[in-house]
Design a protein around this nucleic acid. Structure first.
Lengths: 195, 195
DNA sequence: ATTATTACATACCGATCGGTATATTATTAA
DNA sequence: TTAATAATATACCGATCGGTATGTAATAAT
C-alpha cells in the first residue's frame, strides 16, 4: 500500500548496537549512528522513535543474543565444571584479543544509565537475573549427573557467579596483568568444585 | 604580584568531582561544572586546563581519598574478618540508602573511558591494584595475629576480593533484591575464613 | 492511470556543546 | 603612584548536538 522500506531494519539495529556498545549512549552521536547504519535520520526516527528508543532496542537485541550465547556456551560440554571453566576463560581471552576491549554492552549500560533511568535499571537487572537462572540450571544439571555435590545451593552459587562475572568483565577494561585475572578465574571455579 | 584567586581550588575540584561522579564525563557539561563549582569558565580553564584535565584531577582526588577511606575502614576492627565484613556491608547499605546510587567514581570511569584512553586505563587499573595491596596487608595482619590460616595466599585472595568488590558495586547500580546481594557478601566473606 | 500512503534525501531548526577573546578589576612590586 | 601581572566577568566563537519540515520517489489499492 506504500513504498517499502529499503534497508534491513535488523541489520541497521545491529549496526546501532555496535556503535552504542563501543561508545556508550552519550558519546554516540546521531551522525555516528546513521553513518554506520547506512540510513538517513528521518528513516532512523520513523523506525526507532528517538535516540533513547533506538538505544533501548539495541540493548534488548544485545541481551537476548547474549543470553543465547551464554546458554549455548554452557551446553557445549557435558561436564559442568568444564563448561564453566571454558566459559570464563573465553570471556577473558576474547577481551584481551580485542582492542579496544568492548566489555559487555549490558554492563556498560548499567553503569552509564541504570542509576538515572528506571527503565534501564530494570532492563539491566533482569538480564543479570536471567543469566543467573542459566547458571543455576547448569549447576543443577551437574548435581543431577552426580558431578557436583548435592549439598551446594545452586541458586546462591549462580548469583555469586554472575556478580563475579560482572567484576571480571569490568576489571578487564583496565587491562590488568593476566596473572591477576587467571588467579581470579581459578578461585571462582573453585567455588563450583567445592561449595 | 598579581590578583589572588578568589575561589578555593580544592573546594572547586571537589564540586567538579561530584558532578563527574554523578553524570560521567560525557554527560557533564561545562555549564553543569561551572555552576556547581561556583566559578566562571575562564577560571576553570586557567586552573585545570580543559575538561579532560579537570576530569583527571577530579579522578585523582577521588582515588586518593577513596584509598584513604578503605584503609581507615579496614583498620577500625582488630579482627580482620570483622573488618572485611563491616567494610562490605557498609558498601552495600550506603548504596541502597543513596538515590540515585552513585557507585564508585573510579569504576564508572573505568567503564566509560578506560577502553578508549590509555591514561585512564592506567589510572583506574592502578587504583584497583592499590586497593588490592591494602586488602593484602589487612589479610597479612590477620595471618600474623593468628586469626587467619597461615596457609592462605594473601595476595591472590586480595585480588579476588577487589574484583568481587567491583562486581558488587556495579551490580548495585541496578538495585537488585537485597537477598541476592547479602548472599554474595556472605559467600565472599567465606573466602576470607576458609581459604 | 489515479490516488493514497509511506520511505527517501536534503536541508534546515534552535539549543547547546567545549573553548576563548576581550576588557575590567584587584593585587603586588617598584 | 605607576607598572606589571593575573584573576575575574561578559560576551562571543564555530561546531555539533538531537530532532524535524519539506519535497520527491516508489509502491499498492482502486
Amino acid at each position: 500500500m506504500a513504498r517499502p522500506r529499503e534497508f534491513d531494519q535488523d541489520k541497521a539495529l545491529e549496526a546501532a548496537m555496535d556503535v552504542f556498545w563501543e561508545k556508550g549512549f552519550e558519546a554516540a552521536s546521531l551522525s555516528d549512528l546513521t553513518a554506520r547504519m547506512g540510513i538517513q535520520r528521518p528513516s532512523l526516527y520513523s523506525a526507532f522513535g528517538d535516540k533513547k528508543g533506538l538505544f533501548e532496542a539495541a540493548l534488548r537485541k544485545y541481551t537476548s543474543s547474549h543470553a543465547a550465547y551464554v546458554r549455548g556456551s554452557l551446553h557445549k560440554h557435558s561436564s559442568v565444571k568444564e563448561a564453566f571453566r571454558t566459559f570464563f576463560e573465553d570471556v577473558v581471552s576474547k577481551e584481551y584479543e580485542k582492542s579496544p576491549s568492548t566489555g559487555c554492552f549490558c554492563i556498560n549500560s548499567m553503569v552509564e544509565l541504570a542509576a538515572h533511568d528506571e527503565k534501564f535499571e530494570i532492563l539491566t537487572r533482569e538480564h543479570q537475573m536471567y543469566l543467573s537462572v542459566i547458571f543455576q540450571e547448569t549447576l543443577e544439571r551437574g548435581i543431577q549427573s552426580g558431578e557436583l555435590d548435592a549439598g551446594i545451593n545452586a541458586k546462591n552459587l549462580a548469583q555469586t557467579l554472575v556478580i563475579s562475572l560482572i567484576g571480571l568483565t569490568v576489571f578487564l577494561k583496565s587491562r590488568p596483568d593476566r596473572v591477576v585475572i587467571d588467579n581470579f578465574v581459578k578461585q571462582i571455579l573453585t567455588l563450583v568444585t567445592i561449595s
